[in-house]
Write a protein that binds this DNA or RNA. Sequence first.
DNA 1: TATAAATCCTTCGTATGCCAACTAATTGGA
DNA 2: TCCAATTAGTTGGCATACGAAGGATTTATA
Lengths: 139, 139
Amino acid sequence: MDKFKDCVIFLLAKAYQKAHGTFKKRLTGYGLTPIQHLILEVLWDEDGLSARTISERLVLDPATLSGVLERMVSGGWIFKHPDPEDKRTLRICLSDKGVSLKPKLTTERDQANQECLDGLTMEEKVLLKRLLRDVSYTK
Amino acid sequence: MDKFKDCVIFLLAKAYQKAHGTFKKRLTGYGLTPIQHLILEVLWDEDGLSARTISERLVLDPATLSGVLERMVSGGWIFKHPDPEDKRTLRICLSDKGVSLKPKLTTERDQANQECLDGLTMEEKVLLKRLLRDVSYTK
DNA sequence: TATAAATCCTTCGTATGCCAACTAATTGGA
DNA sequence: TCCAATTAGTTGGCATACGAAGGATTTATA
């Protein structure tokens, strides 16, 4: 692995792999995946968004989102309501389950985040997040 | 996205997404993917490794690797040689194509890495890589 | 030495993830 | 107003990813 210590693409892949795996394990008991959790977070912030808007907020391909939303409907987390104003648009709405599990799921996310940053000092944590934002948002 | 500015899992996912996409674009002309390129790098370092060893060096599930290797055989990048000493083991060997494209592909990787870190100062680049290693390798 | 345990790889199932192409619906412009 | 361009979402194709289970082989042990 030393071979890749300067390859930021590899390092990002592995750090992401680790973080994703950590969160995934915490969520299995809920029948939820990390990406599905992320969608819930967007909806907790603002319910009834269109699929398009969710895909923009999460920087996720609409084609990817389509399948995820379908599985979340099957899992009883959300509903799809056709928009009466614009028949092309779907309004994605939280189910009772999706609303009521917010506190527990938010805790899981916070703990997973802490777990991922376990070995870092407070300054390093802040710095890492800043640098990751820079990498993501550049151009 | 502001909503996720403190969620390192999200930030890692998006930074990885960006880096992966950047590298992927550079490789499409070669008919190669980022993960396949990574496997070539391991083999450039030491040819004839077993699939098991490759999966360990890249921290990649053997089940995932199996399919990737098969596609790399189809693409003419590698060969699979059964090990005469141990019939369970496959020795993965570079093809002429896999060997001869090393210089060009290495350049592409280097440029992709630079591109990903474009907005950062030299200090930040070093720091980011160090922090990512810490995140990955912390048990 | 016969059998249990471990190892190597593959296959299956499920879930991202993206691109390209497609349908349906809406909007814009001549 | 009518048709072209745009927009929303889905589908199909391909490529990771991982867990679980299975087949073939090798090793360890009773």
